[in-house]
Amino acid sequence: MSALTTLHTLLDELGVPADAQLVELAVTHRSWAYENGNGPHNERLEFLGDAVLEIVITEHLYVAYPDLPEGQLAKMRAAVVNAHSCADVARSLDLGTMLKLGQGEINTRGAEKVSILADTMEAVIGAIHLSAGGAEASSRFVRHLFLPLVEQAAALGPGLDWKTSLQEALAAAGRPAPLYVIEATGPDHLRHFTATVMVGDQPLATGEGSSKRHAETAAAEAGYRALHD
């Protein structure tokens, strides 16, 4: 099944109209535009789609979790509305195979990059929002794809935000705030990061990942679990 079929099959199932030209623009990366006459690309649609995604998820959280304080709602939203979640949803729709990329991005496997996939996902949301179905259709699309992530976030407990959970646990124990020391290895396009979380002058735990954020999160989780063993 082609990526175009994957996306449009879902849109048909949801009864969500999508303007073909806007969808084409949504998958056009600036690298392709610059190599092809400096035409339009998807960054403006991404800007719109980011706002649509945030308001739909925020409204859902407000209504669905009436007893949660603002801080907890914000953590849940951050667990859902972020580049990695958007990229995962983009992968589920095979958007990477639809992307129009410049040769430089093709050479560095741009269709697999979290940032490009996430931006494209947001641009597709923006395209749907501007199509005939408007806000109702874009909300239906977002809810279908992202509400399962909200349910997962609701069940995470301290894992909703490992760094904050570790900082709060250390503060409750009267210990210093954590600091993260990062080491990176590998070529620029395939970096691997190791984070060591320090408490005072003592290492508490380490974590690894394909980004600084992932490594720090892994280290924070290991540190939190170490404190509670």
Rank of each mutant, 00 (worst) to 15 (best):
214 H>C: 01
98 M>L: 15
227 L>W: 08
8 H>T: 15
5 T>D: 12
107 N>K: 11
127 A>Y: 01
75 K>A: 14
226 A>R: 15
103 Q>W: 05
18 A>K: 10
172 A>E: 14
13 E>T: 13
90 A>C: 09
81 V>Y: 02
173 A>F: 06
45 L>H: 00
54 E>V: 01
63 V>L: 15
194 T>L: 04
68 L>V: 08
172 A>T: 07
123 A>T: 06
218 A>H: 08
98 M>A: 15
214 H>A: 14
135 A>L: 00
172 A>Q: 12
111 A>F: 13
225 R>L: 13
38 N>S: 06
198 M>T: 03
147 L>C: 10
77 R>W: 04
149 L>M: 15
222 A>H: 14
35 E>Q: 14
102 G>H: 10
15 G>D: 10
76 M>K: 11
35 E>V: 03
178 P>F: 03
53 L>G: 03
142 V>D: 06
141 F>P: 11
184 A>L: 00
47 F>S: 03
62 Y>K: 15
157 G>T: 11
33 A>T: 07
97 T>R: 15
160 L>N: 12
19 D>K: 06
121 M>G: 00
103 Q>R: 11
188 D>G: 03
139 S>K: 13
228 H>W: 04
122 E>Y: 10
191 R>T: 10
27 V>G: 07
105 E>M: 12
47 F>W: 00
24 E>S: 13
113 K>W: 04
33 A>W: 10
182 I>H: 06
45 L>G: 01
162 W>Q: 05
125 I>M: 10
10 L>H: 05
60 H>I: 04
90 A>E: 08
48 L>P: 00
52 V>I: 12
111 A>M: 10
99 L>G: 06
143 R>L: 14
7 L>H: 11
